[in-house]
Amino acid sequence: MKRTREKEGRWMKVGFIGTGSMGSLLVGAFIDAGAMLPANVAVSSRTPSKAEALTRRYPGLRLAPSNADAARDADLLFLCVKPSDFRAVLTEIAPVLHTGQIAVSITSPVKLEQLERALPCKVAKVIPSIVNKAKAGASLAMWGTRLAPEDRNRLTELFSTISRPVEIREDDVRAASDISSCGPAFFAFLLGEFADAAVRHAGMERGKAETLAAEMLLGTARLLVEQGFSTQELQTRVSVPGGITAAALDALRASTAEAFPSVFRVTHEKFAEDLAKVEASLRESGDTEKGGSP
């Protein structure tokens, strides 16, 4: 009876539609973590060269000739496509899916209720992060109404092999994604600026400055996550009143006061645009199926 995680993850048939940046990352992360076997994974992509690269890296992985073929026999199907591609993909795969399958979208502007309206299967939305490639960071989980508790447990177990799954409200997906999924790009930018300043103002070698900055960020994250420090406590522990760090923190607060509020305003405005485009596209698709104009 040694089929606990193997039964839940490694032995299920899995399909991936879309092998772009995040689709390819998920395929590789799950296989490298031992959560999936290449022979049980099928991928389809509108860019065959990306899918073919995965089949070369993971012998046994199957390149499906179409999205419908990748979906047909999958116990678990990942939808890793852009919002603008969802209408065509959902139209193609809906006829081959059945109620026992689970479809997981990693695209935040596509809502669960839209997926449930378009597909006959169970659905979930899980937003990964690039840091899941390092078996770190969070994955943001939102559940459709058709999922049973055991389905949620299976998905949570699967994503636990590469991340820390965190269940969120779908209404919070944009803010949560800003932190979890966009955050690595934001902080990579800030670390690059930090290293550049060390080069410009102190003549430090760039590679060494980047190494020190990256190791600092890794250690800081461990203190916050593993040692229970709060962000405020960590600042207090490092800075001494009247000291160098305290003075520098004052300068940093003054120069970045509006930085992250501005980031959230921009991401939410863009997200609202994407929501409207997806809604219009899927509504148009539904009207066409009912005999309306295309």
Rank of each mutant, 00 (worst) to 15 (best):
P184K: 02
A185R: 02
F186M: 01
A188I: 00
A188E: 00
F189M: 13
F189P: 00
L190H: 02
L190P: 04
E193F: 01
A195H: 02
A197I: 04
A197T: 11
V199A: 05
R200T: 10
R200V: 10
H201E: 15
H201F: 15
G203S: 03
G203V: 06
M204W: 11
R206Y: 12
R206F: 10
G207K: 13
G207F: 05
A209I: 05
E210G: 04
E210T: 13
E210P: 07
E210C: 14
T211L: 14
L212P: 07
L212I: 13
L212G: 03
A213F: 03
E215A: 13
L217Q: 09
L218W: 08
L218F: 10
T220H: 02
T220W: 04
A221F: 04
A221I: 03
R222L: 06
R222K: 15
V225W: 12
V225D: 15
V225P: 06
V225N: 15
Q227D: 13
G228V: 09
G228F: 10
Q232T: 11
L234I: 03
L234M: 09
Q235M: 07
Q235S: 05
T236W: 01
T236G: 00
R237T: 00
V238C: 04
S239M: 06
S239E: 08
S239I: 03
V240S: 15
V240K: 02
V240D: 02
P241A: 01
G242D: 01
G242W: 01
G243T: 00
G243Y: 00
T245W: 00
T245G: 00
A246M: 05
A246D: 07
A248V: 03
A248C: 09
L249S: 00
D250M: 08
A251C: 12
A251M: 09
A251D: 06
L252S: 10
L252K: 04
R253I: 02
R253M: 07
A254E: 12
A254R: 11
A254Q: 10
S255V: 12
T256M: 10
A257L: 10
E258W: 08
A259F: 09
A259M: 08
F260V: 10
P261Y: 09
S262Q: 14
V263E: 06
F264I: 12
F264N: 10
F264Y: 14
R265P: 06
R265C: 09
T267W: 08
H268V: 05
H268D: 15
E269R: 13
E269N: 07
K270S: 10
K270W: 10
F271Q: 03
A272F: 07
A272T: 14
A272H: 09
L275M: 11
L275Q: 14
